[in-house]
């Protein structure tokens, strides 16, 4: 079971969290022209790396904050976690 350090609450076991996918995806700005391809890339296409992966987690059974995690998808090692407005 992963142990994830919530930037607000500290280390907690994985079962307090839910996963939120690739954190490198940036939702395009509202009201801004965007090509079909760029939009579809945002909605469907993923880099899906083996190794370092920045991803979102949500402390659902805790402070309910979303935050960022840098994790190795091959070993599950977590290098770092950060608040949304912080750099990983």
């Amino acid at each position: 079971m992963l142990e994830i350090k919530c930037p607000y609450c500290g280390k907690r076991s994985q079962n307090e969290f839910s996963y939120g996918g690739d954190a490198s995806l940036k939702r395009p700005q509202l009201e801004k022209e965007i090509s079909d391809k760029d939009w579809d890339d945002f909605v469907y296409f993923r880099s899906n790396p083996r190794g370092k992966h920045s991803e979102l987690w949500h402390h659902v059974a805790g402070c309910r904050q979303w935050f960022k995690v840098l994790r190795n998808t091959a070993t599950h090692e977590i290098f770092k976690t950060a608040k949304i407005n912080e750099e990983l």
Binding site: M1, Q14, S18, D22, H53, R71, T75, H76
Partner: peptide, 13 residues
């Protein structure tokens, strides 16, 4: 298991 993974193993929960 519910998160991106290339490890051919999971966790007990």
């Amino acid at each position: 298991d519910g998160y991106n993974s290339y490890a051919q193993r999971g966790n007990l929960p």
